[in-house]
Amino acid sequence: MEENNTQNSSLVTIRNLSFAREQRVIFDNASLDIQHGKITAIMGPSGSGKTTLLKLIGGQLSPSQGSIVVDGQHINQLNRSELYALRKKMGMLFQSGALLTDINVFDNVAYPIREHTALPESIIRTLVLMKLQAVGLRGARLLYPNELSGGMARRVALARAIALDPMMVMYDEPFTGQDPISMGVLVKLIKTLNDSVGLTSIIVSHDVEETAAIADYIYIMSSGKIIGQGTPQELQQSKSEWVQQFMNGKPDGPVKFHYSSDNYFDDL
């Protein structure tokens, strides 16, 4: 019932999405909604297509079927300049960081601001230092991406993703490679950003506990389908074996740990 009331406030609406890579079907008639101003988590086994989903939402890939509507616009019907205008309002934290390697941390975070605004350098400096302070890396601003650890690179990428104060941020595994302290800080940061400036957040993550703590709504996907959805409390109490297996990290159950393959013993 609750879902119906909030239906019209969704920022991203995905209906009957199908997508295949070569022979492999990655999405098969999946539908989901990302609510405006909420934190939506997408969880699922490795290789289930979470990164692919974010790339579909960002318009870097086009679905073979179905529709993806972001902020009222059909993303794969936009022309280039409309798509770019929409992307200015989306931030994306890549799983790999995707920092520009020939400029330092400061310039990386300043990059989108310099590209899309004509702000004077002094204001850019203030903005960038604020973002870097938020991820705890203000002191690392002169380092180059190859001098950062994996977790630090991801935090810089996070600072860059929020540099332009977008309406929506997609975080692809922001917590991977973070120590417990920075993890706690990041969880809080994502939550604060979301609540204070009315951001819409999509988090892809494997860290069930941390994600469940801040997410408003969770989708669990596997084998191209949404196999469970609900608020964290609903999912914890879910009767579904799939959901229980995933939320509690049990190796045995209906969700497969292995990439689809022939029988193990036949293969040996």
Binding site: Y84, R87, M92, F94, S96, A98, L99, Y111, H116
Partner: peptide
Amino acid sequence: TEQLSGMEMMA
């Protein structure tokens, strides 16, 4: 290293 994709996503 996904830098080109990263730029595309930064419009």
